[in-house]
Amino acid sequence: MTTLRFDDVACVRGGRLLFEGVSLALGAREAAIVTGPNGAGKSSLLRIAAGLLEAAAGRVTRNGAAALADENAALDRELPLGSALRFWARLDGREDALPEAMAAMGLVHLAPVPVRMLSTGQRKRAALARVIASDAPVWLLDEPTNGLDSEAIGRLERACATHQAAGGIVLAATHQGLRLSKVQILPLAPTRDAGA
């Protein structure tokens, strides 16, 4: 059973308290959207959920592998997009799932284009396609709609819906609206420390 729980989690970065007392419980087919002003710690919260950062206090329990799409594309700039994505798909043992994921984000025609030639939105779509191709049940999406046109946002919403229908969890941090089903909103208020 896929779950993601935050119990009273606090985050300190560079000696500053970003947030504290954050609790969240997500089960299969559920989603949450983290909102908050710039610097409130949305990305840090996702990195804590991914296991890349330690929580300063509280407990994080994740049942199921995570896939992260953040601001970094993590694709070799000189390689064609198809080969760059295939490296990760091979690492995940999911090479057969890649064509479908690329089609889901409308990337098929870009497969031979070197990554360095892609636009911000296209690179973002590539990072999302990597998440879709992985079989990780927990999706962590940091500003997934940044640079996406409305058609691509629709594609992302459909992909999230499919993922949730299959028992997956989506945790997204975003300013813009992302329509997800069974969604909780988690607002991060700036602490006095962070706001100062």
Partner: peptide, 13 residues
């Protein structure tokens, strides 16, 4: 590190 490749590897365990 800059490109996030190390992060992606760490997320994969």
């Amino acid at each position: 590190r800059l490109n996030g490749v190390l992060d992606q590897l760490a997320v994969r365990g």
